[in-house]
Design a protein around this nucleic acid. Structure first.
Lengths: 364, 364
DNA sequence: AAAAATTTAGCAACAGCGTTGCGTAATAGG
DNA sequence: CCTATTACGCAACGCTGTTGCTAAATTTTT
C-alpha cells in the first residue's frame, strides 16, 4: 500500500510486517531471528511480537534450548487466523484458490466460463465459488478479501478493466467496484502475470531479488518483481513481453509489428517443434536479463507447463551459455512452484499483502 | 539509502526529504504546498521547515498575500548551501560538473584521458579537476561528495569496478574505496546510464513516473527509473539494452549472440543511413515500452546527439504508431535536457540524494 | 548440593516523532 | 473600529522504538 505521510503509525505497520515476513519465510522463528533481520533492539522486537500475539496472528510454539542460558521462545504464524481468496480469470475458465496467512495454497477449484462471458456472468461464478470455499470451515469472519488476476489491459489503481484482450463485454468495466458491492468483500484487481510473480515473491520473503515470471498461455506475458515490489509500469501495462520484436524480418503479428516473440514462438510451436519454440522463448528471456539483470526467472503458463522440461532446459542453457555472463552474474531459472495455481494464489497473496505486508511510502 | 530498521529517526529524514523534493521541483514553496504534498498537518510541516531552516538548507524568500488573511511565508532552497561534484568517466574523456542543492548544473570541464588509462591516472585527473572546481568559490566545506558515472560492469553496492568494458587495468578495482582515500571525499560509484536517468528524475521530483534513458555512445545502454528509484538489477548489471536480440537472423555481435540491437544499429549507422539506424533503435525502445510500460523515454549519448532530430523523430513516430497503444497509454519522448552533461550531473545528484533524498526502507 | 555464568525476557523511564488543542499575529472588508 | 479570515506556533499529548536495569531459566563450575 502506497502512502505519503510518514507518522509514527507507519513504523508500527512496517515493523509488524517485517516480523510477519520472517514468519512466513521461516515457518518458525524466535526473537533473536527478528532482531537480526530487522535491526531493532530485542526489547523493541518483544513489543512487536506482543502486539502480533494479541492480534492472534502469531503464537508461541515451544522453546529452543541452545545450550547454556534461558531457553528462547519459538513463535510461528497462525495460518488459519486469516485467509484470502484468489481468482484467476482466463478466457474460458475461472480458477479459485484459498490461501492462508502462511501462504499455503489450499486445493483449487476450476470452473468453466461461457465463451465471451459478461461481467454479470463472472460475478455469478465468483459468488458461487466463494460461497463454496468460504463455507468449508466457516471462514467468513477471517476472510480478508478477494484478489483477481486477469488478462489486461486493465488499471490496477482504479480497479478498472480497460479492454480485456479477446473478450467482448469488457470495455472500461469497473470490476473492483462492482465486485466489492456484489460480494461484500474487499477486492484487489491486477494483471495475471503480476499476480503470479507476487506469489513467488511472497513465499520467498524479503530476500527475494529482482525476478520475472514468464507465462506462456494463449500469448506470452511477463510479470516483474523489481526492487522489492511488483512492477506494473506507468499504466499497469507492463509485461507485454510477447510483443517485443526479436526478428525484424519475421512474420507480422496481430499487434501490427513484425517478428514479435509471440508470433515467432507460436509459429514454431504450431509446427510441432517445441524445442525450437522453447529456444525462441529463451532468446526473449536472455533479452530480459540483459535489460533488467534478474536474479530469478520463473516459468509458468498452461502451454509451457505441457512441456516443462523442454522449456526449462532451453532457458537454463541459454542463460548459462551467454558468453557475457561472468561467474558473479548468476540467475536462477525454475518452473513455478505453484504450477497452474500461481496466478490465483498470487492474487490472494496480494490481498493479504495489503493488510499484513510491508507498507510502501511515496514513490513515483 | 537503503536501511532496514524503522525507528522514529527514520521519519525525520523522510519528511525532511519530502520537503526538499518539493523545493527542488517548484523552486519556491510555502507551508500549504508541503501540507498538500505530504499529508502532514500544518503544525508538523512547521516543525520540519524549522529544522531545515536551522540547517541552512532552506530560507524564507518573501511572503505571498492571497487576499484576505495573514500572508503566507514563501520558502526556497538555498542552492549554494551544498554542492556535489559529478564525474563521467568514458573511454577517452573525463567530464566533471558541479551541481548545487537545487539541481543546477554549473559549467562542465572536459579533459582527455590516456588510452587504456590506469586507476592511478584516473585518480590524478579527478584530483586535479576537483581542486579546480572546488577552488572556484572555496566550496570545500559545502562539498557533499563525488559521484562517478562509469561504463560497467561494476558493482554499485560495493563500489567495485568489475571489468570496465574496453579498458585493460580495470579488473576488480575497488574504485570507491581508493578514491575516497585519495580524495578525502565520500564517493558514489554507479553505471553511467543509471546516473543519467537519476539526473532526469531528480530534477522532476516525486511525480516523475517510470522512465528510461537511452544512451547511444560507443554502444547502446539503458538506464531505468522504476517505482520511484533507479533500477540496477540483481548485480548492478541492468541496462545492457544494446545486447537484446532484435533480429534472430542478424549478424553476429561481439557478445556472441546474433542480431543484437547494437550490432544491427551499428551496421546501419556505419553505412551512413542514420534514419534507418534511428528506426532500429526505435524498435528497441518500443520493445522496452511493451515490457516495462514507461511514462518517459529520454534520449542521450554522444552518437545520438549528433543527429538529435532524426532520432527523436524516429522514436516518437514508432511510439505513436504502435497500433496497440490506446489513448490512455501515453509516453513522452524527449532529448536529454542536460545534453552531454547528463551522466556527470546525475552522478553528482546521486550523492546529494544520499544525504537529502528520500530514504528507502528494506527491499529485495 | 550450592554458587556462578550465561542467555532470554520484560518492566519502567526516556527521547523523538507527528498530532491535537488552542491562542496569537496579520491582513482585508464592512 | 470591529469582524471574518488565513497563517502560524506554543504546549501538552500519544505513539513509536530505545535505554537501563531487574528477573527468570538454564548449564557449568565449585
Amino acid at each position: 500500500m502506497t502512502r505519503v505521510t510518514a507518522d509514527v503509525t507507519f513504523l508500527r505497520g512496517y515493523n509488524e510486517a517485517m516480523v510477519m515476513a520472517v514468519g512466513r519465510t521461516a515457518r518458525t522463528f524466535e526473537r533473536s531471528t527478528v532482531v537480526e533481520a530487522t535491526g531493532l533492539t530485542p526489547q523493541g522486537v518483544s513489543k512487536v511480537i506482543a502486539r502480533l500475539t494479541a492480534d492472534g496472528l502469531i503464537r508461541p510454539a515451544g522453546v529452543r534450548r541452545p545450550g547454556i542460558g534461558k531457553p528462547a521462545v519459538v513463535y510461528e504464524l497462525v495460518p488459519d487466523s486469516r485467509y484470502a481468496i484468489g481468482a484467476h480469470v482466463a478466457r474460458r475458465t475461472l480458477r479459485l484458490v484459498l490461501v492462508d496467512l502462511a501462504g499455503t495454497v489450499h486445493p483449487s477449484a476450476v470452473s468453466p466460463l461461457p465463451r465471451d462471458f459478461t461481467p454479470e456472468q463472472l460475478l455469478g461464478a465468483l459468488s458461487a465459488g466463494i460461497d463454496t470455499l468460504a463455507g468449508i470451515g466457516d471462514l467468513r469472519g477471517r476472510l480478508t478479501g478477494l484478489g483477481i488476476g486477469m488478462i489486461g489491459p486493465l488499471d490496477h489503481a482504479d480497479g478498472l478493466v480497460r479492454d480485456a484482450h479477446g473478450l467482448r463485454h469488457w470495455h472500461d468495466v469497473p470490476l473492483r467496484e462492482i465486485a466489492e458491492k456484489h460480494l461484500g468483500l474487499p477486492v484487489h484487481l491486477d494483471k495475471d502475470v503480476t499476480a503470479g510473480i507476487t506469489a513467488e515473491a511472497w513465499r520467498h520473503g524479503a530476500t527475494f531479488g529482482d525476478a520475472a515470471l514468464i507465462m506462456v498461455e494463449s500469448g506470452i506475458g511477463g510479470g516483474f518483481w523489481l526492487g522489492g515490489a511488483a512492477h506494473r509500469g506507468a499504466h499497469t501495462n507492463a509485461g507485454e513481453f510477447g510483443h517485443t520484436v526479436v526478428d525484424l524480418t519475421g512474420p507480422r503479428c496481430v499487434c501490427g509489428r513484425h517478428g514479435c516473440l509471440e508470433i515467432v514462438h507460436h509459429r514454431a510451436a504450431e509446427a510441432g517443434d517445441i524445442a525450437h519454440a522453447a529456444r525462441v522463448l529463451a532468446v526473449g528471456v536472455v533479452n530480459l536479463l540483459q535489460t533488467l539483470d534478474l536474479a530469478h526467472v520463473v516459468l509458468a503458463g498452461a502451454d509451457l507447463l505441457r512441456h516443462p522440461q523442454t522449456y526449462l532446459a532451453a532457458v537454463t542453457e541459454a542463460v548459462g551459455a551467454d558468453a557475457r555472463r561472468a561467474d558473479w552474474l548468476s540467475t536462477r531459472v525454475a518452473l513455478s512452484s505453484l504450477g497452474a495455481d500461481v496466478i490465483a494464489a498470487g492474487a490472494a497473496m496480494q490481498v493479504l499483502d495489503q493488510h499484513y505486508g510491508i507498507p510502501e511510502l511515496a514513490h513515483s
